[in-house]
Amino acid sequence: MSLTFLTLFTLGGCQGELSTLSPAGPAARDIATLWWGMLVGALLILSFVMLLILMAFRRPAKTADEAQQVRVWIVNLGLIFPVSILLALLVYGLVIGERLLPRSSAEVITVEAEASRWSWTFSYPDRPGLQTQDVLHIPAGRPVDIEITSTDVIHSFWVPRVAGKMDAVPGHVNVLRIEADRPGRYAGRSAEFSGSGYASFGFTLIAHDPTAWESFLAGETG
């Protein structure tokens, strides 16, 4: 069963404009790699545990002393085995998490995103007064910090192929670091349930090459 699962994943994994498994930016790629690694690890652990259970049915009954069994099953397999795996995973996860944080640098561009039921308004501090509705423009290949907030209920900013999501919470401004590798259009969705218009609530992310970005900021495309 797990084999078919894996096959299904690899078949369907690399298409779809909302797929987290066809990453188009460094954050999404780090996370996709993390996922594939964890999937392989999880399948190995699952097979190992299931094998242990199956073997219990096939082996002739023999009596061993209880202290020995406690040592094998509870101390070695129950304690030491998961602790070593989890420690490695935790450290790996924290390192990736640190890498994805929005640290300040000269490269970074800031965009403000404001959600309200059911539309996104984006404004660009680099060009005061410029606003776009439901379409977010960024330059490709440069880190962008999205400052996310909401005017009514909680929403969430999510462009699955580019990065993870960040909630838009009324009264708070949350910052999400995103970056798109190449120019192109990427689908974005609001990923926190917001009532009757939720299903179709989304936006489009357009990543520009440097010249197109300059002309966007100059107000020539929009």
Binding site: L94, G97, E98, L101, P102, R103
Partner: peptide
């Protein structure tokens, strides 16, 4: 452990 290792307030 993160108290000693990860960055704070970001």
């Amino acid at each position: 452990l993160p108290a000693a290792t990860t960055s704070y307030c970001v």
